[in-house]
Design a binder for these strands. Structure first.
Length: 582
RNA sequence: GCGCCCGUAGCUCAGUGGAUAGAGCGUUAGGUUGCGGACCUAAAGGUCGUGGGUUCGAGUCCCGCCGGGCGCACCA
């Protein structure tokens, strides 16, 4: 659609119907900025463009004049092609000027039919975009969840898990290659505290104030396998931080480290299993410690030193982030010799790019926003394009029960696990819930209300519509009615329920494109709801399986088949099941 | 104190600088003997927190204010 309007605009300028702007680049900019959207009021047309109003200044003409010139070109193109002109038919059947200069466009009915035919021919490809010629197919790394394995995932982790997975699916559908990645810390203070807590419970002693107190700690204490217990008992006693030297084996582990690392790995495996239940699976699990043992942190520091971005001060190693506008420099290695998280992050950037990724997306909690700038700056200092490192800050979910906020603390053991949440409301409903809301705005989640109303979740409306489509196709098959091989003249009347449904169906590629460029998913749920609504209206008005009118019945069946394929594609994009019966 | 984010219908939330600001839930009134009633049609419900500004046009961009959340470590 955009292309058609762009062509018409350029032709109008070339033919002199519109004056050429002083600067050729200005015309290019105008063409690049052409927007074609679906008007809220469908009486205005299938699509509308505001290009005439936008171009008013550059082209030095009133919006209505510009719109009229473009409309004339579009109409000429349509009739020319229809009467034997060369090339494929253009997408637009009719163009007119309305209001202050809107260009209202009506799709050629044949275009809808072409789309529907393509869907029925290759239903599983529908919704997947080919990467446009010349556009790079990015190799994207999406790191998300990345909760430290010191306790089971809580419902607080749920949003990030869904957002990262949904974004991955959308980008894949848009033709990009995606690596899903989980980053976790397997050494250090937190793991040590976990080890101490497990040991305390095993010995029947109260857990320290700063230890972990959830029920799962007791379960771990009771489940220590004999070989681990033996190794722990044999380990030398020592105290202090488990640092990198300790991790890589140059200093022997003590009992706490042995137990802590065992407990942590066991929890990590549990997290992996919980995520699999959500339909979230990772390609790469990367431990923080490996960034040191494999030398990536050293490599990052070397590169920064070469670029003169480092400074030794007060016994510590600093990154000069003030050079990038940060309000203070940031420590990479503490005066104790241990590295900070920031140090690990630097190594991680180098490691990720070394695997050939050209875009990094970090799905982080909103509370990390303070660290966004410094890490992107460090990426720049390391020689990477700043634009290729993006942080998606997922906003807080305020969990409330009967209107009262619930506090969620892993250490205190006062949390609801992800597994518990899913038992209550189900994966499909939870996925829809998070997909339908912008990741960057805070939301309230009332667990009681979600449980009570889970059957009112719009996800069931969409799934129900899909099941009903399948049911119709089954019924037709039982009555020996087959879908037509082409949609025929069913869509000629653009006000018919068939045409309305067809227009809803063919929007999917636009939805995928918009979602992938904006890194959002709510448009997909909106699309699924709209398609289900259009189908329900069609279903009411048009009897599909009707042996007394086999030809019309066959055409409608083809439409239903296309609708089922498109709704199924949208649901799969959301990671939601596509039931054929409910 | 400084910085970032948010404030849209009774509730939960959408909303690419464009036409009459939308959806779901809830409420109200109808419909559905025809392929699945987990359905359909419609109504009521809005000072888009507030006051200025930019623009042909502002929920959207800029500034102030009010209210809420988060962050400001040689923590992880």
């Amino acid at each position: 659609m955009r292309d058609a309007v762009a062509r018409a605009l350029r032709r109008a300028v070339a033919s002199g119907a519109l004056p050429a702007p002083d600067d050729a680049a200005a015309l290019d900019a105008l063409v690049a900025g052409i927007e074609v959207e679906i008007p809220g009021n469908r009486d205005h047309g299938d699509y509308a463009s505001n290009i005439a109003m936008k171009g008013s200044k550059v082209l030095k003409r009133a919006p209505a004049q510009i719109a009229a010139a473009i409309a004339a070109e579009l109409t000429a193109e349509a009739s020319e092609r229809m009467h034997g002109g060369g090339g494929a038919l253009g997408p637009i059947a009719h163009a007119e000027v309305a209001g202050p200069g809107f260009l209202n466009l009506r799709l050629r009915a044949g275009l809808l039919a072409d789309h529907l035919d393509a869907i029925v021919r290759a239903p599983l490809a529908w919704g997947h975009l080919a990467v446009a010629a010349g556009a790079p197919a990015y190799r994207v790394n999406i790191e998300f969840v990345s909760a430290n394995p010191t306790g089971p995932l809580t419902i607080g982790n749920a949003r990030g898990a869904f957002v990262g997975d949904l974004l991955s699916r959308v980008l894949e559908a848009a033709g990009q290659s995606v690596t899903r990645e989980y980053y976790f810390n397997d050494f250090g203070e937190q793991v040590r505290r976990l080890g101490e807590s497990v040991i305390a419970l095993r010995n029947g002693v109260a857990v320290a104030e700063n230890g972990y107190k959830g029920d799962y700690v007791g379960e771990l204490a009771a489940a220590i396998p004999p070989d681990v217990a033996a190794r722990a008992a044999a380990a030398p006693k020592r105290s202090g931080e488990i640092d990198v030297e300790g991790y890589d084996g140059t200093v022997a582990d003590d009992e706490i480290a042995v137990i802590g690392r065992w407990a942590s790995e066991r929890i990590r495996a549990g997290i992996e299993a919980s995520l699999a239940v959500l339909g979230v699976e990772f390609d790469v699990w990367r431990s923080e410690g490996s960034l040191y043992t494999e030398g990536f942190v050293d490599r990052a520091i070397g590169k920064l030193r070469d670029g003169n971005w480092l400074e030794e001060r007060e016994g510590a190693l600093w990154f000069k982030s003030t050079a990038f506008g940060d309000d203070k420099d940031r420590v990479i290695r503490k005066s104790s010799g241990a590295y900070t998280y920031f140090g690990s992050d630097l190594g991680y950037i180098v490691e990720k790019f070394s695997r050939g990724h050209d875009r990094l997306i970090y799905v982080w909690g909103q509370d990390h926003h303070g660290t966004v700038a410094r890490l992107r700056n460090a990426g720049e200092a390391l020689g990477f394009d700043k634009e290729s490192v993006e942080m998606l800050l997922v906003a807080w979910v305020r969990f409330v029960r009967d209107g009262v906020e619930m506090s969620m603390s892993k250490r205190a053991g006062t949390f609801i696990t992800l597994d518990e949440l899913l038992e209550e409301i189900g994966v499909d409903a939870a996925r829809w819930y998070f997909a339908s809301r912008s990741a960057t705005t805070a939301i309230d989640f009332d667990i009681e209300a979600a449980k009570a109303k889970s059957s009112d979740n719009p996800v069931y409306y969409a799934q129900y519509a899909h099941a009903r489509m399948c049911s119709i196709l089954r019924k037709a098959s039982a009555e020996s009615l087959a879908p037509a091989t082409a949609i025929g003249s069913l869509l000629d009347d653009h006000t018919s329920p068939e045409a309305k449904l067809a227009r809803a169906i063919v929007r999917l590629p636009e939805v995928v494109e918009d979602s992938s460029t904006h890194h959002e998913t709510q448009g997909v749920t909106t699309y699924a709801t709209e398609l289900a609504t259009a189908f329900s209206a069609f279903y009411r008005d048009a009897k599909v399986v009707d042996a007394s009118a086999p030809e019309r019945s066959a055409g409608r069946l083809r439409l239903v088949a296309a609708a089922a394929a498109s709704l199924s594609a949208a649901l799969r994009l959301l990671g939601i099941s596509t039931p054929e019966e409910m």
